[in-house]
Nucleic acid binder design. Structure first.
Lengths: 357, 357
DNA sequence: ATTCACACTGCAATCGTTTGCGGAAACGTA
DNA sequence: TACGTTTCCGCAAACGATTGCAGTGTGAAT
C-alpha cells in the first residue's frame, strides 16, 4: 500500500483518533443510550430525561467537544436552521449591507443564510432556489423581486416561507420590507421646490421593478401636490439602473430642448450618468442644474459635487426582513404584513437654488 | 384537530402527493433495486449497470423529476460539492468581484460556495469555519489571511484543502493567488518618476497583512532602483485601510514639514483620505501633489480628480483561486503553487508633473 | 461437461441524528 | 397489598442516499 496521501487525516480505523465525536460517542461515555443523549442535548426535550443524567451527558459532550452533525440532523428533521438569500448581484453596493443586516439578526438566533447570486437570470434563480430547497432551507428572502415574478409567487403560494427585501411584487401578500419610496421622493421634491425649482425632470428606473414604478408614481404625485405641470417631456424612462442610461436620458432631454433646472434621478447611478452628461455639455451642477439621487451609495459623498441623495437604510432593511422571516417560520399562520422603512434626505452639494431667469 | 396550518404541504401521508421523489421511488418505478438506480444515476458508476437498465432508470428519473438529496448524499459520502468562502467584509467593494470569480468557475463544475463574513473577528472566523466543516465542505478559500494566522495554518496543516486569495500568509506553502503587488508599485513608481517626481511618500497599509508589507517593501525597492533617498520621514504607517487613516497620515506629514510632490497610497481608501487632507490644507491635486491609489475600486474614476490607481483583477483573482482549490481537491498530493497576477496602472488625472521649484 | 471469468444486480450495512412506542422502575393512593 | 400514574430511558425505525459483498446467470475456454 502506498503511504497515505498527505493531507488526509489518519482515518477512523485507528481507535480513539481525532475523529469528531458523534452522539454515540458521548452516549457511550456517559453510559446512556444515544436516544437519551440526544434528548439531553436538545433543550426542547431535556425535560424528558433525569436532571442528573442530563447534566452528565452535557458534561461529557462538553469535554469531548461534541458538535452535532447538522447534516444528519437535517436529514432526519428536514430542517436546517438556515435560509436562502437570493441576490441579483453582489457587486452592486446596494446589497452587501442588506446581507449584513440579515446575517446579523439570523446569526443571533442560530440561523444562517446561504447567499446566491442570480445575475438577474431567471434560470439561475430557479436553479439556485431548487438547489437550496433540496438542502432543506426553511425559507427565502429575495432581493430579486420583479413586479411580475411568477416564480416567487408560486413558491410563496406553495407554502414556502418567503419575504421580499428592497423590492416588492406588484400584487401579492408576500411580506416585504422596503424603503418608503413615496416618502423619499416626497422629501426630495419638497427640498427641490423649497430651493425654488419649478421645472424638475425625473429619470425613472426600469418599470418592471417596484422601486422604479413607485418612485415614478411618487414623482408625479409630488408634481401635482406642488401644483407643477406634469408634462411627459419632463420624464425619461431608463431601461437600466446604470450610469450610461442616465447619461443617455439627460443628453436626450438636452437635445430635445426641454428646459429644466433640477433632476430627480431614480437612483445614484442614474445621477452619476447625469453628472457625465451635464459635464459633457459644459453645464455645471448645481449651478446650472441641481441633481438629487437615490440610495446614498458608498462614495457618492466623494463626488464633485458631493451628491444630494435619498438615503435608504439598507442594513435595517435586511435586519427587518430577517425578523419577518423568522417570525414567519415560528408562526406560519400569523397574518402577513409588510414593512416600509422611512427614508431620509442627505443634503450635500449637488442641489442649489436655480439660476434666476 | 385544528385545520392544518396554511402554507403546509398536504404531507407525505397522502399517497402519491407532490412529495419530491426519492431514489427509492425511481427504483420502484423502473423495477430495480435502489442500489442499481443509484449506480445508474451516477456517471462514475454507470458502467456497472446494464446499458438498457441504466437508460430506463435515467428515463424514469427524468419523468419523475428526480433530484438527488444532497443532504443524504453528504451524510453518506462526507462530501458536499461545496466549499467555504471566508470573507472579512462583504461591504468592502474589493470582495464581491472575487466572490463572483470564484462562484463562476465553481458553478461551472457543479460546486458551490458558502460565503461567510467574519467582520475581521477571529472568533467569528473559527466559528464559521467549524460550522462549515461540520457541513462537510470540501475546502476553503480565505480572503481573510493575515501574515501570521495560526488558525489557517493549522487548518491547512491538518490537511484541509485551503487556498488564499488576495492576501497571503507570511511563510507557508498554502497556495495563494494574489496580485503582483511588487510589480504594481513598480509601475506606479515608474509612472511618478517619469513624470518628474523625486520626493514621493508612501502611505503604507496595515503591516500585518501581506498587501501592506509587500507594497511597502516594493516602495523602498523602487526608491532604491530610482536612486531616490529612502528617508523614514517619507513613510507613514496607517493602522487601517481607511479614509480617515489616510487623511491623518497626510496631515501629519504636512504638519511635520516633510516636503513631497507625490504620494503613493497603499490603497484607494487611503488615497481618498489623502484627497481630503490635501483639500483641507488648500492644496490641489494634482497641481500641488500627485496621488496614486491601489485597487481601482468602483467609482474612483468619478472622483475629482479621477484617481490614478493600480488596478487589481479581482474577478480573475477569484477565478484563479477557485481553479487552484478545485485542482487541489482533485489531486491533493500534487505539489502546491501560488499564483501572482499582473497589475496594471490606470492613468487618470490625479497625477501630473510636479510644480517647478 | 466442468470450470472460470465476467457482467450485472440485489442485499444490507452505513452515515449521525431524532422520535414514537413501550417497558421498567418508582411513587402515590386506596 | 394492589393498582394507576409518572418519570425515565432504551429499542428500533426512520431520513435518503452510497457501497462492499455476495449472488445469479451468461458465455467462453478447457
Amino acid at each position: 500500500m502506498p503511504p497515505p496521501p498527505p493531507g488526509t487525516e489518519p482515518g477512523p480505523r485507528t481507535a480513539s483518533v481525532a475523529r469528531r465525536p458523534t452522539l454515540k460517542d458521548v452516549a457511550g461515555e456517559a453510559g446512556v443510550h444515544p436516544a437519551t443523549a440526544s434528548r439531553a442535548l436538545n433543550p426542547g426535550t431535556r425535560h424528558l430525561v433525569n436532571d442528573e443524567t442530563a447534566q452528565r451527558v452535557l458534561q461529557v459532550a462538553d469535554t469531548l467537544g461534541y458538535q452535532p452533525n447538522p447534516i444528519a440532523r437535517s436529514l432526519k428533521t428536514a430542517r436546517s436552521a438556515s435560509i436562502g438569500l437570493v441576490i441579483p448581484d453582489l457587486t452592486n453596493p446596494l446589497f452587501p449591507p442588506i446581507v449584513r443586516g440579515i446575517e446579523d439578526v439570523l446569526g443571533g438566533v442560530g440561523y444562517n443564510a446561504w447567499i446566491v447570486n442570480t445575475d438577474n437570470d431567471p434560470a439561475r434563480e430557479t436553479a439556485a432556489v431548487e438547489s437550496l430547497r433540496s438542502r432543506s432551507v426553511e425559507g427565502f428572502v429575495f432581493a430579486t423581486g420583479r413586479l411580475h415574478h411568477p416564480f416567487i409567487e408560486r413558491l410563496a403560494a406553495g407554502g414556502t416561507p418567503t419575504v421580499l427585501v428592497n423590492r416588492r411584487l406588484a400584487v401579492s401578500d408576500i411580506p416585504s420590507v422596503t424603503g418608503d419610496d413615496a416618502g423619499g421622493v416626497a422629501i426630495a421634491m419638497r427640498h427641490l421646490v423649497d430651493l425654488g425649482h419649478r421645472r424638475i425632470v425625473h429619470l425613472a428606473g426600469p418599470q418592471d421593478l417596484s422601486t422604479g414604478v413607485n418612485r415614478l408614481r411618487a414623482f408625479r404625485q409630488a408634481l401635482e401636490d406642488h401644483g407643477l405641470e406634469d408634462s411627459p417631456a419632463r420624464l425619461k424612462l431608463c431601461s437600466a439602473w446604470a450610469e450610461s442610461a442616465g447619461a443617455k436620458a439627460v443628453t436626450e432631454l438636452l437635445d430635445d430642448g426641454v428646459e429644466f433646472t433640477a433632476v430627480l434621478a431614480g437612483n445614484d447611478l442614474l445621477a452619476l450618468g447625469c453628472y457625465d452628461a451635464l459635464a459633457g455639455r459644459g453645464l455645471s451642477c448645481p449651478g446650472d442644474v441641481s441633481v438629487v439621487g437615490f440610495n446614498d451609495m458608498p462614495f457618492v459623498d466623494k463626488l464633485s459635487p458631493p451628491l444630494t441623495t435619498v438615503r435608504i437604510p439598507h442594513y435595517e432593511l435586511g435586519a427587518e426582513a430577517a425578523h419577518l422571516l423568522l417570525e414567519r417560520l415560528r408562526a406560519p399562520d400569523r397574518t402577513t404584513r409588510s414593512i416600509l422603512l422611512p427614508l431620509t434626505l442627505v443634503d450635500r452639494q449637488s442641489t442649489a437654488p436655480p439660476r434666476l431667469l
